[in-house]
Write a protein that binds this DNA or RNA. Structure first.
Length: 562
RNA sequence: CGGGGAGUGGCGCAGUCUGGUAGCGCACCCGGCUGGGGGCCGGGCGGUCGCAGGUUCAAAUCCUGUCUCCCCGACCA
């Protein structure tokens, strides 16, 4: 029985004063969630229904690819994390028990699941396997934000594949990719999968599943047939117009001109004709001068990948002797290796760059002729760059899932091996795969909300339909609505019945705020003609249904909804 | 971690500058009207003003400390 008069659905006219994101405002206003502390949220009954519907879709698709559901604890011994090397992660919540033993609250479960597999899997005959669970994750986030979009505690489906070799891993990865496609389609989201960074922990490849929305934290570069996180995106740069070439670099006096804009203006050149130098200290390599076009920016993730190591910006005292003072650094004559961005052409002269001494720049510079360099794609793409001839656009998106080829990153430190046909111990190849149900729900709110409130995809809505009755208790309308409620339930619809003694405006406003895909209204006026109103939430179009056979007609209509 | 902002009834806010014992709207409770878009009238309940200390005859208001929350950035294995 889900009569609103006996339910807990605390709707609010006004959003929390400090909320910014649409999903944050609406999910609170609609009575789905309430905040406990920073990044800590309670799901109220209707909100938890949504969460469970997402979970169920995930569960079905994981089972369909042979996933075996288990449940691992949130609380784990620190020992496992010390072995994997993840004990040092700042986001990891660490605590001690009464005996003083170190414990950890899991932020994912690679250590735990690998620990088990190490002892449970003995033979190649035990492989491959897919294990998953849907469990609380704890992360000491630097900055939780935007309601459910980034929280410190959240539920995640994480699955792990265990295979005997890379080929097996690729197959498990592919299975997950297809399962994820189905999951996000079934959830009714607009989504795409993008290439992503494998991160500092290494890995053999990864994709992220992104749901575009204004509150998204990631920027994604998109073109027909191309989608990548801007952290790793590559594209053809827009051409740049260069000043006249010269036989050799020519020094120009540029007192006090240290910014790209100032130098470009003084030289009557476009910013793209400048070579911007960014000195960094690369781990194990020392000073490297990274050079990009003046209209481009260095991408830290791509740079770290290109260097093959972590790096940090060099301090003035670390680079001044080799390349001159800040603002006048350039690649010509630099006493350090030069890493030249791929977007800088080396078949033309005419570039402008710092002269490695105060108050001077060079013009007429040509890479290769005037300085040696190493090539790498290290810039951040910008809107208008092209991929396959198509200009890219960049839009914000929220990450709702990821898939990651781990390789032997965990099986090695945790000793997860199997015996092959020849009796030799071999490392198990692993993959890990995450999905956040709460983020899926929040992304759906972001993507489909309108000025009246939430508009759930049919598969995620807390209820299939909301039945609104107008009129005082004891009236014919009430009797008709009570009957229809039972018929709808018998027909298989999950119905929220607004049987409160409240005015029509309030009931309609609440129903549209909550966002169930179908609203059925019984009121005196239409009841007199033996009819009722059916409103489709997405688009808010109304139609009239005969009361006779209304349940069957409503189910039929409901089946056609998005 | 850096920058900015905010804590006053369930929610949204005023009052703080200029100290005098807390107010508005919504919600809630009671009664009545209304009954297809948050309707109307009347009557009510509800707040140690985040917390601690200090100044003062007197503190929501001034001072010190502290906690919490939000936004931007950094970070995000």
């Amino acid at each position: 029985m889900t009569r609103l008069s006996a339910y807990l659905l605390p709707t609010e006219k006004e959003a929390p004063a400090d909320a910014e994101a649409i999903s944050h405002k609406l999910m609170v206003r609609a009575g789905l969630i309430r905040q406990v502390g920073t990044g800590m949220w309670t799901f109220l009954p209707a909100g938890w229904r949504v969460h469970r519907r997402v979970e169920q879709i995930i569960r079905e698709e994981m089972d369909a690819i042979g996933g075996l559901e288990i449940l691992m604890p949130v609380l784990t011994p620190a020992e496992l994390w010390k072995r994997s090397g993840r004990y040092a992660i700042d986001e990891l919540f660490k605590l001690k028990d009464r005996k003083g033993a170190d414990l950890v609250l899991s932020l994912t479960n690679e250590e735990t699941v690998t620990f088990h597999v190490a002892s449970l899997v003995r033979s190649y005959r035990d492989l491959p396997r897919i294990l998953y669970h849907i469990q609380t994750k704890e992360r000491d986030e630097a900055r939780p934000r935007a309601g459910l979009l980034r929280t410190r505690e959240f539920i995640m489906k994480d699955s792990y594949t265990f295979d005997r070799d890379l080929e097996g891993l690729e197959a498990g990865y592919e299975k997950h990719a297809r399962a994820y496609d189905r999951i996000f389609d079934r959830c009714g989201l607009e989504w795409y999968s993008v290439e992503s960074d494998v991160g500092a922990m290494g890995g053999l490849g990864a994709h992220e599943y992104m749901a575009p929305c204004a509150a998204g934290e990631n920027d994604v570069a998109l073109a027909p047939g191309y989608a990548a996180n801007v952290e790793v995106a590559s594209a053809e740069a827009q051409p740049v117009e260069l000043p006249p070439e010269r036989d050799a670099p020519e020094e120009v006096h540029t007192p006090g001109l240290t910014t790209v804009a100032q130098v470009a203006a003084a030289m009557e050149a476009s910013p793209g004709a400048l070579l911007k130098a960014y000195p960094v200290i690369a781990e194990g390599r020392g000073l490297v001068v990274v050079v990009v076009r003046g209209d481009h920016r260095v991408n830290d993730v791509k740079l770290a990948n290109a260097l093959g190591t972590s790096f940090r910006p060099a301090r003035e005292e670390e680079f001044a002797d080799a390349v001159g003072p800040a603002g006048f650094i350039g690649p010509v004559g630099a006493q350090a290796p030069v890493l030249l961005d791929a977007a800088v052409p080396d078949d033309r002269g005419g570039f402008v760059c710092g002269a490695n001494k105060p108050d001077a720049h060079l013009r007429g510079v040509q890479p290769g002729r005037d300085f040696q360099f190493e090539r790498a794609d290290v810039r951040t793409v910008v809107a208008g760059d092209t991929v396959g001839g198509h200009p890219i656009r960049i839009e914000p998106a929220i990450e709702v899932g990821n898939i990651f080829k781990l390789g032997t990153r965990y099986s090695e430190p945790l000793g997860a091996t199997y015996l092959d046909e020849t009796g030799q111990a071999q490392l198990i190849w692993m993959g890990s795969y995450g999905i956040g149900p709460a983020r899926i729900a929040a992304a759906a709110v972001e993507q489909y909300a309108d000025e009246k409130g939430i508009s759930w995809p049919r598969s995620l809505a807390p209820f299939d339909a909301e039945l609104v009755v107008l009129g005082k208790p004891g009236t014919d309308e009430r009797a008709a609505a009570d009957r229809l409620y039972e018929e709808l339930r018998a027909a298989g619809l999950d119905v929220l019945y607004d049987d409160r003694d409240a005015g029509p405006g309030e009931k309609f406003a609440d129903a549209e705020l909550l966002g169930c895909p179908l609203r059925l209204t019984i009121g005196r006026r239409m009841l007199a003609g033996g009819e009722l109103e059916a409103q489709v939430r997405r688009g808010r179009e109304s139609r009239t249904l005969p009361l006779d056979g209304a349940a069957a007609a409503a189910v039929e209509l409901w089946r056609t909804l998005p």
